[in-house]
Simulated scan of single mutants.
Amino acid sequence: MLDLAWSVDELARTRLAFSPLWEIVASVRVLARPGEHALHLPWVRQASAALADAGIDVAPLADLVAGRSVPRFLAPAPSSPVPQLADELADLRDVSPRTVRREIESMDPTRPVSLTRLHRDPEAGLDRLAGLMERYWAVALAPAWPRMRALLEGDVLHRSRLLAAGAVEDLFHDLGPAVHWAEGALTVAQRRIPATGAPHGRGLVLVPSVFVWPRVVSRTHAGWQPVLRYPARGIAGLWETGGTTSSPALRGVLGRSRSALLTSLATPADAGDLARRTGLKPCVVVKHLQLLQAAGLVTVADDGVCSRTLAAEALVTAGAD
């Protein structure tokens, strides 16, 4: 169990970030056990076919992440809010051989024979592993990354607003049934996680994730900032294509097209994604987004990704109720 007492200092040091490297690791676990991750089956079918066509064997990586916990050198806390995969892979290549061997030797269950080569020569093995991850990313995740990134950025934006407003209870209440906040203490009910109840002055790294669903994953180690990985907000609509249904009340106020766009923005998206989700023509989507933005219901980032504002969140929620 992760059990963190809170303080003003803890809150000030808490930060949000996401990690492409972690999404590689977590997605490989999804491919190995797709039955446990039914939400991601549309992606599993596409990625499996693409990997087979490209002749990419993910077994060396799958064997490494198949245990009850992922080796720490494959799942470091993100060092920046939006890290680049190239930088994360460069850090992976620089992991010390001693660390690699220690993590492999402590795997539970015992490491498979396939990892003997990595254990014997970690430096060369990490270079091969990073190269495999680059190829895997290009084939299995890069096509879906704009959609995934929009979802992750939307979660970071939403929780950053809550954190800035000091709404700590709201920050944690929807992360999952295992996560509880009460009377200044955060508890994550997980087996094999040591409890650390005293304030430690390092805050917490909150990491929204696509492929961690349906679980949350926490990690604490002496001397390191605790990490909590959780399913990103709006994950249920990530792989949807077309057919967004808005509430009758919302349609009565905004009209069918604009209400459909706001409803589909449960997860942030650009105009192209919204056209696919709603079935509207791209030119119609752009026109209505401009109107929604002018009304203060939608924000548009520099890269074209749209998100609902807090006013729009309240409007959609009220309509659904």
Rank of each mutant, 00 (worst) to 15 (best):
S79M: 01
W137F: 07
V168M: 11
H180S: 15
G67P: 01
P146D: 12
A195F: 01
Q190N: 09
D273A: 14
P208E: 06
C306K: 09
V217N: 05
V217A: 14
G272F: 01
G176T: 02
L254M: 12
R72F: 02
G184K: 11
S307Q: 14
A167I: 09
V65I: 08
T14D: 07
G279A: 02
V113M: 13
L126I: 10
L254W: 02
L291A: 15
D174W: 05
V286G: 09
P208W: 01
L292Y: 03
L151P: 01
L238Y: 02
L250C: 08
C283N: 13
D302L: 13
D108W: 06
G255P: 01
L4F: 02
A59G: 02
G67K: 06
A47K: 04
F18A: 15
L89K: 00
A124Y: 00
A77L: 09
D63N: 04
E105F: 01
A236E: 13
V316G: 09
V179L: 10
T244C: 08
W137E: 02
G67N: 09
V207S: 07
E105Y: 01
H40A: 14
L175P: 00
P199G: 07
E103N: 07
A182D: 14
H200R: 13
S96H: 06
H200M: 12
A301Y: 05
V70N: 02
A66D: 12
L163K: 06
A236R: 10
L238G: 05
R68K: 11
G255D: 11
R276S: 03
S218V: 03
R229N: 08
P109L: 13
L39D: 05
V298E: 11
W181P: 05
S69P: 00
A182L: 14
D57V: 05
T263I: 12
A275W: 00
V316F: 07
L162D: 10
R45H: 03
R147V: 11
R15G: 12
P83C: 10
R102Q: 15
L254C: 06
A249P: 00
T110K: 11
P76Q: 11
R102L: 15
E103M: 04
A130F: 08
L132F: 04
W239Y: 14
L289P: 04
V100G: 09
S218E: 08
L162G: 06
V25H: 06
R191W: 05
S27M: 10
P78M: 11
P83S: 04
P248Y: 07
P268I: 09
R191G: 15
L206T: 10
A295H: 07
A311H: 06
V65K: 03
L2I: 04
L162Q: 11
